[in-house]
Design a protein around this nucleic acid. Structure first.
Lengths: 249, 249
DNA sequence: ATAAAAATTGCAAAAAAACGCAAATACCCT
DNA sequence: AGGGTATTTGCGTTTTTTTGCAATTTTTAT
């Protein structure tokens, strides 16, 4: 096998799988690992791939990674937030959970809006407090330090006493079969109650969390009224949810 | 699985869920927990996540606007805070009101202290949350925007259910005749209840507020156990309070 | 206070990389 | 054509990296 052929083969594999392993290439091209290493070395010097211990990665690897981390995510949360605030009307009582998306919504609330927000999330409450016309009610209980929200029996019993018009749920995982799922028992219980006591339930999430699930159920698909992601409502991935009667925004 | 892949996977999970557990990652990536720990270690050294016992937390949710050293505090309040923290012992349940002095105390808590703090003050709660070993319980109710604390019937009834060892009261006015006084009805009621349910009551205030009074009484002089100001305990202005049986610190 | 879980440390085996070298091959020139 | 040169390739050895394991300490939960 000629060097050029090998290079082409490697690049093709790389485009296909975004990564290649030295030993795999060695056996599939029937050359020694040394040769593969030298090939990777050259391609790396040409800037066509990223050489790492054990193989190489495609250039898009870092891109995808960084962009989703620093750029993509905040922007998509802003998009979600701007769609979400349109559901809130003057005089409404709004229950919200925690999470970065919920905080983003809080930052996007129009300044003239007059409403009452009820939440167990400290970061969200801070944003609500900064708003001129919004009343903020904190759900008391012990604070979970990692998520910075209150949760526990007391929080649940308080939520039970509320009849909110709208409930915004920042969610960790959602799929058709399991519904909205969590990995923290206390949080799941509180959210469950939020769903139960609200007229309309709005789930907000970046699309990456669609079709994933975790051990504890918060609510079933049937209990959700709206689903907001950064994608266009007619996106293919959202259609199964639409079929279940959820309004996609 | 390549190391870089694992790192990407971890960061992705972290962006999605804001926290990751070592053992979960270990099983989902099919490597030993040691390897996961080393990965987290490296990512932590790169400043891309916060490593904690059992896993890691995402950067986005932490620190951002929760820095405890935002601005300098007046020296007098620092002095008060340093005297105040000496009263707190491991295992105690501590009720605190709001106010800048209370926040200053929160910032001065020794890192090894293990205690439970109960408060309706959002700024104070934020500081308590930043502490490694402190449990924080928020008293729920409507937030008063100017003072950033919760107050109302619900808050009062919750405070009633607590039997705290210590109560720190940031006060607005105090004099021998009227005791501790306030100008906000709701706040006064909540504080009243805090005083009633705590074993020991500690009033903290800068000396300017000594011998002033406001319309609504929070508690009488006789209910106070400790009074902390930035002044030396033998200062002349404090002697009348000492005579009333208050321990001046 | 005690038991369980997780972190740290040191270590050793395995995998991969680096390096030098020699054989094989390709290339160039007269 | 053929000799000299350069390039390529594979091999053995050494070095580095990675990984998992065991023993110990630290942290956390009960």
């Amino acid at each position: 096998m000629l060097k050029q052929e090998r290079h082409a083969f490697i690049m093709r594999q790389l485009n296909l799988h975004n990564k290649v392993l030295s030993n795999t290439l060695s056996s599939s091209m029937h050359v020694s690992e040394d040769t593969v290493r030298r090939d990777l070395q050259e391609l790396s010097e040409e800037g066509r791939l990223i050489k790492v211990h054990g193989g190489a990665l495609s250039l898009s690897f870092n891109d995808a990674h960084f962009s989703s981390e620093k750029f993509y995510s905040p922007k998509s949360k802003r998009i979600i937030a701007e769609k979400a605030v349109k559901l809130i009307q003057n005089g409404m009582f709004v229950l919200t959970s925690g999470g970065t998306t919920i905080v983003e919504i809080a930052k996007c609330l129009p300044p003239q809006l007059k409403a009452t927000f009820i939440t167990g999330s400290i970061p969200a409450a801070i944003e609500y407090m900064a708003h001129p016309h919004i009343d903020v009610i904190i759900i008391g209980d012990k604070i979970l330090k990692d998520s910075k929200i209150t949760a526990g029996a007391e929080a649940i019993s308080k939520v039970k006493q509320i009849n909110a018009n709208l409930c915004f749920l920042g969610i960790n995982a959602i799929d058709i079969e399991h519904g909205v799922t969590e990995n923290d028992w206390d949080v799941a219980q509180v959210k469950k109650e939020m769903v139960a006591t609200s007229e309309k339930v709005v789930c907000v999430t970046i699309s990456e969390k669609l079709n994933t699930y975790q051990p504890l159920q918060t609510c079933s698909i049937g209990q959700i009224n709206y689903l907001i992601t950064e994608l266009e409502p007619d996106n293919k991935i959202l259609q199964p949810y639409k079929k279940q009667g959820i309004i996609i925004i």
